[in-house]
């Protein structure tokens, strides 16, 4: 039962990754794309966790933690870039 659930939930997350990708490509504005990237990394954390569950190994949590931290920092950096660019204009 558990392995079936894991596969189903992975499928759900894959669908949401595709939705994020569509939003990333369609835009229309830069903040939209950054938001899509932000959601993309959060969803990929979910996928990694599920893979760890599937394999029955707790090793993958380290990578999930790393992605969470780097993703937040990159979102913050991109937003700062947008803000500063506008101030200089």
């Amino acid at each position: 039962m558990l392995s079936t659930t894991i596969v189903i939930v992975s499928a759900l997350i894959c669908v949401s990754l595709i939705m994020n990708l569509i939003r990333l490509l369609r835009g229309p504005d830069l903040p939209d794309r950054i938001l899509a990237l932000d959601t993309l990394y959060i969803n990929s954390i979910g996928l990694i966790l599920l893979f760890g569950l599937y394999k029955g190994s707790a090793l993958y949590f380290e990578s999930a933690l790393l992605i969470a931290m780097l993703g937040f920092v990159s979102t913050a950096a991109l937003c700062k870039y947008l803000l500063r660019g506008d101030i200089i204009e």
Partner: peptide, 10 residues
């Protein structure tokens, strides 16, 4: 909920 979040984004 993850799906709903992305669905909302779209």
């Amino acid at each position: 909920f993850v799906l709903l979040g992305s669905f909302g984004l779209l």
